[in-house]
Design a protein around this nucleic acid. Structure first.
Length: 317
DNA sequence: AAGACGAAAGTGGTTGA
DNA sequence: TCAACAACTTTCGTCTT
């Protein structure tokens, strides 16, 4: 990964940064800090990164894109004279296309224009990679074509669509985050999200808690050991039954909490609750479940008594 | 005083009759 | 369409550090 330019990690000053495109994050290799906070507007740089990493797609003029209402083409189907050489069947097809385009451009254009503007705003606020924006645009276009936006506000549907796109690309954003970015109520987003995915038959696998770990960990200033420990705990919990039906975020949060205890980087439940968006109670419940099922109770007790005992730092695992 | 823990009641969504 | 149900939240009291 070359071409990372001159950015430095504000935490440790290292220039050894890693652009994790999958997660939409820029991470410091030395201290694990996620540098690209979602509130920082870095839209320009994002594109730079993508191009410098050899993505060919953006080299030849405007790409076709779902983030413009007509995919950026601006083409309209021509008049009769274009079709003189076509046979009957094809000409009929062409006519139908023209009718379609007319309907599309009159009824849906306005809606799409507004929606895609909102979409872009959201994506840049949340610092989402372009792939998400594309997918969101695609989904939304489908939704409009199937008349799914009727009673709902454009904004709420856009928010729901963005959430869906994030889920599909395994780039986790919580409902809370999208809610904050869009100003739409969490419930409302969830509602339109469910509606859209159901009607469009978008299959979304239950989100993997592991996807949340790295982001939460960096916000909480956990070191890399704790982070991988958290993933470790999490994957063990996954192989047991612990995850079915439970909210993945709560599980991720609890796993991180435990990892913090085990690695001596203690955070309060409230801290974790704040960054993860689930309550302390839920974290506690998952926490208890996990440690009993994984047989971690003794280990944790040991650590706690060690703290009372003396603050020796000869712990080895 | 702050954090951890847990009980009890409430909320919104899913499911099955 | 409604009731039962599970997961999660809110609130609050108690214990621990």
């Amino acid at each position: 990964m070359v071409g990372e330019n001159v950015r430095k990690c504000p935490e440790c000053g290292s220039t050894n940064l890693y652009n994790n495109k999958d997660k939409g994050e820029i991470v410091c290799r030395s201290c694990g800090l996620v540098i690209d906070g979602r509130n920082i507007s870095l839209g320009k740089e994002w594109r730079d990164f993508e191009e410098s990493e050899g993505s060919e797609m953006r080299r030849t003029g405007a790409p076709t894109t779902y983030t413009k209402f007509d995919m950026g083409l601006g083409t309209s189907i021509g008049s009769e004279s274009d079709s003189f050489s076509l046979d009957k069947k094809q000409r009929y097809k062409l006519q139908r296309l023209k009718r379609w385009q007319k309907r599309l451009s009159t009824v849906m254009e306005k809606n799409l224009k507004i929606a895609l503007g909102e979409l872009r705003r959201l994506a840049s606020y949340l610092n989402l990679p372009t792939a998400i924006e594309e997918e969101s645009g695609k989904i939304y276009t489908e939704a409009v074509q199937k008349n799914l936006v009727r009673g709902r506000s454009i904004e709420s549907v856009v928010a729901g669509v963005v959430y869906a796109a994030c889920r599909r690309q395994n780039i986790p954003r919580t409902l809370d985050e999208i809610s904050e970015a869009s100003g739409i109520d969490k419930k409302e987003i969830g509602r339109s999200y469910r509606y859209i995915t159901r009607e469009l038959k978008i299959k979304i696998l239950p989100s993997n808690p592991v996807d949340y770990i790295s982001r939460f960990a960096s916000v909480l200033n956990y070191g890399p050991e704790t982070q991988s420990r958290g993933v470790d705990i999490l994957s063990k919990a996954l192989t047991l039954d612990l995850t079915s039906g439970r909210g993945p975020i709560g599980i991720a949060a609890a796993a991180l909490y435990i990892a913090g205890l085990l690695e001596g980087e203690r955070r309060t439940q409230r801290d974790i609750s704040e960054v993860s968006g689930v309550t302390e109670v839920t974290i506690r419940n998952r926490y208890k479940e996990i440690i009993t099922k994984l047989g971690l109770e003794d280990e944790i007790k040991k650590i706690k008594s060690k703290k009372e005992d003396d603050s020796d730092d000869n712990s080895d695992f």
